[in-house]
């Protein structure tokens, strides 16, 4: 049983939480302009590493708030727990974040609101 430290409630048993899968997937803002294959990467394709994995968790039977975990999928060791909207701070977490193919994907590029240009 994992002991997970909810950033809001402290240490609780794994059975109080639910896992929401891969973290840091940004929805394309201009989805009508990207191709089906780029949208498919956002919607269906998933990072599924054997090693450090960044994932979202929810304290379902507690405060019901979401947060992120950097966890090893082989040893189940939790390296880091950080809030939604943040990126990982540990070396392993940072590396996993940068190494993800999503950082350079068309879907993620399309998730950023384009800067306004002067007319």
């Amino acid at each position: 049983m994992l002991k997970i430290k909810c950033p809001y409630c402290g240490y609780r048993n794994e059975s109080e939480f639910s896992c929401g899968g891969e973290a840091h997937i940004a929805r394309p803002a201009v989805s009508n302009k990207i191709t089906d294959s780029a949208f498919c990467e956002y919607l269906f394709m998933r990072e599924n590493p054997k090693g450090v994995f960044l994932e979202r968790w929810c304290h379902t039977s507690g405060c019901r708030r979401w947060f992120n975990i950097a966890r090893d999928t082989v040893s189940h060791e939790i390296y880091e727990i950080y809030l939604m909207g943040n990126t990982p701070k540990t070396v392993k977490g940072k590396k996993a974040y940068q190494a993800n193919w999503r950082r350079t994907s068309k879907a993620e590029a399309a998730s950023k609101t384009p800067k306004r240009t002067k007319k």
Partner: peptide, 13 residues
């Protein structure tokens, strides 16, 4: 199980 894992054991709940 409810989370990704490559350890061939599974979680206790």
């Amino acid at each position: 199980d409810k989370y990704n894992s490559y350890a061939q054991t599974g979680s206790w709940p």
